[in-house]
Write a protein that binds this DNA or RNA. Structure first.
Length: 423
RNA sequence: GUGGUCGUAGCUCAAUUGGCUAGAGCAUCUGCUUGUGGAGCAGAAGGUUGCCGGAUCGUCCCCGGUCGACCACCCCA
């Protein structure tokens, strides 16, 4: 015999036991419900992607160090998707002639990053991706930001629980150009800006001066009248923010340090932060990527969207103690059998209930009835019916509510409604 | 990729300066009898102290390595 295998899961990934998976499903169900109300359709794709699609326009850091990339047996370079947006862009590009734009699409893919596991970060997580494809800046941006807010609110969050920080890549780019920063130096400036909050002001100033700018982009944005392009882009962004505020999104602010890590963003970028002082971190974000689809040829197709990870969302729900109903798939009724020989009849009785949508668990053991009740309690099944010779003979059952201990006879036809009402 | 903290039963934790057969609670299972409960009582099972090596008369305890978890960086979701 060889050594026993390890029961540990692979480093940095999670096993989802039924209880864990029920929580994920509850998250996903709430997302799907909200998105359906807004007319969004769900799509999906394989986690395996051609490696090349991450190399053109996404952050180099990710490709170099943070993806699972390998050669398959046919010498193709394969990557486990680190994010969904390039896949979305590829799928849209592939069928650009037959799709009906604008597209309102979402997906809840698992995505992979090879990096050191840490709080809120593992090597695989599920990430809701919501995208609105085929419309330029304006109402599309507003819908996406509102939807991001709406999804958090659908979990019971209040507007004071989070803040939406917005900026614009076009504004930042215009300010960089006006400040004499172009190409690599502009890109480096954005990365520096992204880190600003974590740096001391002197360290930031030193790194900034090292880039050799003629002016300070942030000052240009503050005094936008100095440059007409900056002024125009700033007005567009502020107008967008004002529109959101006018439509009940009061927790949105302009924050020029929001840049987002990916290079493919072209217009608005936003990031949603938890306002809880013990955990004031970024929850998720998104932005506009008008040139990504054109990487596969043809004219650009404008798009805007966001991605929301399941781990940070679950943490958010946990820290704010928001309720999450995880009972939707659980059995509602435990059918106990006084004798093991009653099992076939109990299954047959269960079938009539199942046909009416009742989730019924039938005992298959020869345990004593009292132990079966204990078993039902332990499994968190709310109702119990003993089904044996007496019930068959009298064609009548008594249903027990395990929480209260009450037990009463009732017509079989009433069982489905009682199970649904839960009492 | 860098640095720090930590690995003892399924879980939460004990174990005297390095010294008897590594303990407890919870959870699990079996009884307290065969048509109705979460309690109680009795009992059982559960461990190569993450793994490998070293130092020592002797190690859960010291040292090195390795794997893993957590935390802070880096970066990002």
């Amino acid at each position: 015999m060889s050594e026993p295998l390890s029961t540990d899961s692979y480093k940095g990934v999670r096993d989802f036991y039924p209880e864990d998976w029920a929580r994920r499903l509850a998250l996903f169900a709430q997302m799907r419900e909200t998105l359906a109300l807004w007319g969004y359709e769900e799509y999906n794709a394989s986690p395996l992607e051609r490696a090349e699609i991450y190399e053109a326009k996404t952050s180099e850091e990710i490709v170099r160090d943070q993806t699972y990339t390998f050669m398959d047996r046919g010498d193709r370079r394969v990557t486990l998707r680190p994010e969904m947006t390039p896949t979305l862009a590829r799928m849209v590009a592939a069928k650009r002639r037959e799709l009906t734009f604008p597209l309102r699409w979402f997906s809840i893919p698992n995505v992979f990053r090879y990096e050191r596991p840490q709080k809120g970060r593992s090597r695989e997580h599920y990430q809701l991706n919501v995208d609105l494809v085929g419309l330029p800046e304006g109402e599309a941006d507003i819908e996406i930001v509102r939807l991001a807010s709406e999804i958090l609110k659908s979990f019971g969050a209040k507007g004071t629980d989070f803040v939406i920080r917005m900026s614009s890549r076009t504004l930042l780019n215009a300010a960089c150009v006006a400040a004499g920063l172009t190409g690599e130096r502009a890109k480096n400036y954005l990365h520096l800006l992204d880190r600003k909050a974590k740096m001391t002001s002197t360290a930031f100033a030193a790194a900034f001066v090292a880039l050799g700018p003629k002016k300070d982009p942030l000052e240009l944005i503050a005094n936008a009248s100095e440059d007409p392009r900056v002024a125009l882009e700033k007005k567009k962004l502020l107008d967008c923010i004002e529109s959101l505020k006018a439509r009940d999104i009061s927790n949105v602010v302009f924050d020029p340090s929001i840049t987002r890590g990916f290079d493919y963003y072209t217009g608005i970028v936003f990031e949603v932060y938890d306002t809880n002082p013990t955990n004031p971190r970024s929850l998720f974000g998104g932005g506009r990527f008008d040139k990504l689809v054109a990487l596969w040829g043809g004219d650009p197709i404008p798009a805007v969207g966001f991605g929301m990870g399941d781990i940070t969302l679950a943490d958010f729900i946990e820290t704010h103690k928001l309720p999450l109903d995880t009972t939707s798939g659980k059995p509602q009724l435990y059918l106990g059998t006084p004798r093991a020989s009653d099992i076939p009849a109990a299954q047959s009785f269960a079938d009539t209930l199942r046909a009416q949508g009742c989730r019924v668990f039938v005992n298959l053991t020869d345990r004593a009835l009292g132990d079966q009740i204990k078993d039902a309690v332990k499994r968190d099944i709310p109702f119990f019916i003993a089904y044996g010779a007496d019930e068959i003979a009298n064609n009548a059952v008594r249903m027990k509510i395990l929480k209260t201990g009450e037990e009463a006879g009732l017509p079989v036809s009433e069982i489905p409604t009682r199970l649904r009402s839960g009492s």
